[in-house]
Structures are given as C-alpha cells and as structure tokens.
Design a binder for these strands. Structure first.
Length: 685
RNA sequence: GCGCCCGUAGCUCAGUCCGGAUAGAGCGUUAGCCUCCGGAGCUAAAGGUCGCGCGUUCGAAUCGCGCCGGGCGCACCA
C-alpha cells in the first residue's frame, strides 16, 4: 500500500524531471519529513539537480511541484524548507484502504535454514544464550511472515570438551559412573554427594563444570580425565559414552524448555556425534581432496596436517598464517572441518544424510513449570538427528537454498573460513548464500556482578583486575554468569507483584468479567515481553553490559510499554461493546477530507502502514532491532492519541468513528508486530 | 602487527547502509496531569565540542584519510 504509493511518486518525479528539466535521476529518495505538517514523503531531488542545472534548489522544486503528475492517493506536492519536494497523501482514502486487511505475501521458493541457540549441552543456559535465541527467533518469525519457508536448527555439540569435562566431573568427582545414575540424578535433582537443586540437573552441571575447571587447575594430572572421556565418546560403545549421552539428553531438554517458555521452537537438533558416525566428515574430506581444495603439508610446523589454503581469498589477504588446518597431524578433524561438512549438508551437497527420530522433550526436567510452555511450542514437533534406525515419517531436512548461522561475533573468523571452504570446493553460489548473522555478546558490568554475588552467592565475586574492566565476559568455565531461568524468574516475581497489586485495587475498573486470560498467564506474558524486548531493542553489534535494574524495568522503552498500548486498545473496544455503542468500524458518511484526520490519527496510520517496510529492512540488514524500535514508535503514537482523543466520551459520531478506525488499525497491526517480535499479548494489565 | 566492532545528553541507546530540514527516545532530575477508554500512561523543562583532526560537498553524526580511547578476533580449542 504505502510501498505502491512510494513507487508511483518516484516514477512521477522521474518523469517530471525528464520532461520539465531535461535531466535524469537514477534514484528518487523519499524520506519521512521531521514533522507531519511538512508532509508525508519528502524528496531532496532538487538538491541533487541544483548543481548540474545551475539553479536554486527551491526554484527547481517549485517547477517540479507544478509539473509532477500526482499519482492516485496523493493530494498535493509542495515545496518545503530549502528545496524539498514534499508530498501529502490523501489521508481519508489511505485510512480506508488500510482498514481492508492486506493479503499475506506470496510464498517464496526455496528454504532458508536458520541455525541458532547452539548451547553446549553441559550446563544451564545463561543470558548470552538468550540473546542468540531471541535474535534468531525474530529473524525466523520475520522470514516466515515475508513468505519464506524456514527450518530452525539448534546444533548440539555432544562430543566436545565441554560435555567431556562435565562427564569427567560426574565420574571422578561425583561417582556418577552409569547412565542410570545420571538419570537418577536428573530425576532427583541432586548429585549423590551434594544437596538437591530445585532448578534441576542443568543447574547442578553449571556448578559441577566450574568445579571441574578448578580441579584441573589445582591438580594438573586430573586433566587426563578429559581425553579419556573424549576417546570414550568417540568410540561410543562403553558406559562413559552412555553417561555423556544421558547428560546431553537431559541438558538439551532443559534448554528447549527454557527457550520454549519464551516462545522459541526448533525443528531439528542435529548432533555432532551423528556427523561423525554418519561419516559426514570422511565424505567431505574426500570431496575436498578430489577438488584439490586442501593439501597435506610435508614440512614446516604444519607437517602432516591437511590444510585449507586461504591466501588466494581477498578476505584473508595480509594474514600472517592464512592457512586453516582441517585435519591435525594425528589424523583427527578440527571443529572447522566438521563445520564445513555440516554446512555442505545444509545445502544438500553431501551424498549422505542423517537418520531422524522425534526428540521427546522432557519439559519438566529443568525449572520451567509445565504450564509456562505456550501450546504452540509444546505442540511443535522437534526432531533430532541419529545415525541408525531413523523414523520413516521424518520430514525432509536440510537442502536449504540459503543458510543463516546465528553465532556471536567472536566466531567471525571461523565462519569466514567455512564460507571460503565452500567456495574453494567449487560451490561459490552456496558460499554467497551462507550468511553469518553475527552479534555482540552479553557481558556483565562490575555492578551487575556485585549484585549477582549479593543475590546468588559469593562465588560470583569478581577478581580485583576484573573489577576494573568496563565489563567482563560471562564464563561457563568459571561459572560466572546470569542463568537464563534465574532472570526469567526475577521477571516473573516482579510481573506477578505488579499484576496482583493492580487487580487488588479496582477489579471492575478496567478488567470486567470477560477479560481474557488468568493473572498468572498475564504475568508470564509481561515477563516474557520485557525480556525479549530488552534483548531486541539494541542493535546487534552493541555489547550489552547487563544490568539488573534495566532488565527488570517495566516502564518507558520496555516490552510492557508495548503490551500496555495494545491492552488499552482492547479496553476501548470492550467498553464500546459494553455500552452498546458497538465496536464495528464504519467510515460511511463520516467525512474523509484531509482536515478530518488530525496529525495524531494520521501518525498511527502511517506508522502502521510502514510495518512491512520495517520487516523487510530488518531481514535485509539482519537487524531485528529496527522492528523493535518501530514497535516502540507506534506504541508511543498510540499512547499520545489515547490521551488526546477520547473515543467513548466523544459525542460526534463521525469524529468517534474516525478514531475507532484508527484504533482498529493500530490493534491489528501492532498485534501483528508483537507477534513478529515474539512478545505475547496479555489480556489485561 | 593485521582484521572486525563500539565511541552521540549524567546513564542506556536510536539515527550512520543510501549525506539534507531545529540531532531524537527511554531512564534519572525538576514541574505538572486521575469526577474523563486504568497513571506499566501523558504534558513540559533542564541537559549535546555527535571521541579528536584533516578532507570531500551547496550541505557531514552519516562519506574518505589519519589519530585517540575501549572491546573482540587472528590455535594441530570449540
């Protein structure tokens, strides 16, 4: 709608420039003027032409304003400022067309594979993992909204050192030596030697992992545990391997539940062990050798290694050591090698595939109450990879036409190597369609760490040198970080308290008997909304120095502010029905002249109409924050309108109906926007 | 050393891709607004060498070059 008008105006301006001035312009930029009184769309085209035509911008703009053929829906073209050519839309006509729901965008060919979350399955998730998952999830929602088919993968590194370390700790520090013993610990929420932790097994592992780190430092000989476990996992045939599998099963479930309570769902959990057992790497290795993409070094410090030369690539020019080792001199494959194989599989370039089995999520394994998982997530089937006996009913996974990997900025170099690996192998098109969605980390300010120590215990106390830094990285190894479920619970405490205090005072004031949803459900919606918006509102390249007060704030530029605006719109329609005025939207005979639509009303219509544009831009730039900011602006416009233009008290039916129309448009479009952001809508606030 | 990111109001950030109108929010501070769709809200005030310098341009927070400060990468770790 808005898009069509923009295109038409640009065309008209181009034509006017050609006919009236005999000049050509390649791109007609149309921006939003700073104030509504200056118009709806502004073109600075006269400035561009001023030099070549040797005329004042204002004079050029005046000529164009007189000459330009106004497209349908545009009321006027006028000169503003120092030479802007500004366009005023036909407000009545525009609003009327907005009331008709726009058709869903056509579905697009191909499949986008988005990989996100990817938490090592050896401990509870922290708030940095939350940023990854929320960014990935909004990208997925937006892509789907725009008509793309999307497959969400959450990769499980079940054979890495992190899992090995926790397994070593279970065996050597806790005496948990069998898979059955692991399952008992999962069920009892306690390890044999220790106290129970109501938050569950992943929380126990969080502490255990830190303890293993301390043990390695204190007793160097204990470091041999890791290699023993790694070898056992690799062979995959003894009890240690089964212990590891049981750990991964339980921790992965708790991660899915933690993300699930935030509305995040997955289609497939590919496991690194299956990449090994299914010989993905061996196959990719042969392909790389056959293509001459890699070679074995015979001398120098890399003697015996298979390396991927990258000195040819522009991206890596100037690097001291532009070769990447994929196979170590002892014959084992590096992480990068496995990642290249995985990436090849995602594009359907490997001649082999996983087996697939449904992943039975144990929703109650962690600290998430079952009722907190939204039905849409709980009902969403999750599959995992396997290497034997797959289900015949499994969907077709992989075979993506585009791949987006949501991974923090510290892995940029590795992601580049993977991409160049595809190119060198002879798949330049796939390399171009491999995208690293990079984002900055969530760190702890010294202040947040101090609060953490006060809230959760002295083991979070920073060292004196860390105290001096602007912020410190969270570290699973040190056990330093804010756990995701802990933060959600703090948010829930706050939102429950708010909801209760509000309901206590004036139960009938706004709620009414038919208000949808329970207080508990509303509190959950508010907590989730606050958390998601907190992680989404800043640009992805910005380090978030975590602050409890900020994260727990519900006022101002926050998720609850957005939710509140929508709840208010809902209240208006409910009251209209209650008072018998009716909430039907009708613009029959209400006056659609420009003057009838005040700037307050108009701002909402324009903002709502630009949501598709914001969605498109947020995907193109891989920047969900633009969508979040757009939502905030729209909510602000609505709250402004709400205070100045009452609906129920308005005696003039025509005026009232115009306001109702705007409120309806806001309700529908803001609802849609919050859906894209994954921010739930409370029934009442 | 090389590469990437960040630097805008006391604090946290938009705006930088694609140069344009008086650089905007939120928090905090100060002063107001509930007989009226619930104040998780609204109105207003104070608060800015857009890190610094040079350049390009009619015009620079935005583009280029050079600095300064901070963070992160550049493993036979993942």
């Amino acid at each position: 709608m808005l898009d069509a008008i923009r295109t038409a105006i640009a065309e008209a301006v181009r034509a006017a420039v050609r006919e009236k001035l005999g000049a050509e312009v390649d791109r007609v930029a149309l921006e939003r003027p700073p104030k509504a009184s200056l118009g709806d769309l502004a073109s600075p085209v006269a400035f561009d032409l001023a030099k070549s035509l040797r005329k004042a911008p204002r004079a050029i703009a005046a000529e164009l304003a007189a000459a330009v053929a106004l497209p349908a829906g545009v009321r006027e073209a006028r000169v503003e400022g120092g030479g802007y050519l500004n366009f005023f839309l036909d407000r009545g006509r525009f609003v009327r067309s907005l009331l008709d729901d726009a058709p869903a965008p056509p579905s697009r060919p191909g499949k986008v594979i988005v990989e996100h979350t990817n938490i090592n399955p050896n401990k509870a998730a922290h708030i940095g993992h939350l940023r990854n998952a929320v960014l990935g999830d909004v990208l997925v929602r937006t892509l789907r909204h725009l008509g793309h088919t999307v497959e969400v993968q959450n990769y499980l590194d079940d054979t890495g050192v992190q899992v090995a370390d926790v397994v070593a700790g279970l065996i050597h520090l806790q005496g948990v030596r069998t898979a059955d013993a692991v399952r008992s610990a999962v069920r009892d929420r306690r390890l044999p030697g220790g106290e129970a932790n109501a938050k569950g097994f992943a929380y126990l592992c969080w502490d255990l992992y830190a303890e293993v780190g301390r043990t390695y430092a204190a007793k160097p000989e204990s470091k041999a545990w890791r290699d023993e476990v790694l070898h056992a996992i690799e062979r995959g045939d003894d009890e240690t391997a089964r212990v590891a599998a049981a750990v991964v099963e339980a921790v992965a479930s708790s991660h899915v539940a933690t993300m699930g309570r935030l509305g995040i769902a997955y289609d497939l959990l590919p496991r690194e062990s299956d990449i090994l057992h299914k010989h993905f790497w061996a196959t990719a290795f042969e392909m790389l050798k056959k293509a001459g993409a890699i070679h074995q070094e015979t001398e120098g410090k890399h003697a015996g290694c298979w390396v991927l030369p990258l000195s040819e690539s522009e991206e890596f020019a100037g690097m001291e050591e532009p070769d990447k080792i994929l196979v170590r001199s002892n014959g084992t494959v590096t992480y990068t090698g496995k990642d290249i194989a995985y990436q090849l599989w995602k594009f359907g370039l490997l001649p082999i595939d996983f087996d697939y089995t449904p992943f039975a999520v144990d929703w109650g394994v962690g600290s998430v109450p079952p009722g907190e998982i939204p039905a849409a997530v709980r009902d969403h089937p999750v599959w995992r990879s396997g290497h034997t006996g797959g289900s015949p009913n499994a969907p077709r996974f992989g075979h993506g036409s585009r791949v987006i990997n949501v991974i923090d900025v510290r892995q940029s170099y590795l992601q580049k190597v993977v991409k160049e690996g595809l190119r060198t192998l002879g798949y330049p098109a796939e390399a171009d369609r491999s995208t690293h969605f990079s984002y900055e980390i969530v760190a702890l300010s010294p202040k947040a760490a101090r609060e953490l120590a006060e809230r959760f215990g002295e083991e979070y106390r920073l060292s004196p040198e860390d105290e001096k830094k602007p912020y410190v990285e969270m570290s699973g190894r040190k056990g330093l970080g804010v756990k995701a479920d802990d933060l959600v619970e703090l948010l829930l405490e706050r939102s429950r308290a708010e909801v209760e205090s509000r309901r206590g005072q004036g139960e009938d004031a706004a709620g009414g008997a038919n208000a949808a949803g329970s207080a508990a459900e509303d509190a959950r919606a508010i907590a989730v909304g606050a958390l998601r918006y907190f992680l989404l509102k800043v640009g992805r390249n910005k380090v978030i120095a975590f602050d409890f007060d900020e994260a727990l704030n519900f006022e101002g530029d926050t998720g609850p502010y957005l939710q509140y605006s929508l709840v208010r719109a809902g209240n208006i329609f409910r009251k209209l029905r209650e008072r018998g005025i009716g909430d039907a939207v009708s613009l029959e005979g209400v006056g659609l002249e420009a003057g009838d639509w005040t700037d307050d009303l108009w701002a909402i219509a324009l903002d709502a109409a630009s949501i598709p544009d914001a969605a498109e831009r947020s995907v193109d730039a891989l920047e969900p924050a633009t969508l979040a900011r757009h939502a905030f602006g729209l909510a602000q416009a609505f709250n402004h309108f709400y205070h100045r233009q009452p609906i129920l008290q308005e005696p003039d039916a025509a005026v009232r109906n115009r306001r109702i129309a705007i409120a309806r448009i806001f309700q529908r479009e803001m609802g849609r926007l919050l859906e894209l952001l994954g921010i739930p809508q409370p029934g009442r606030m």
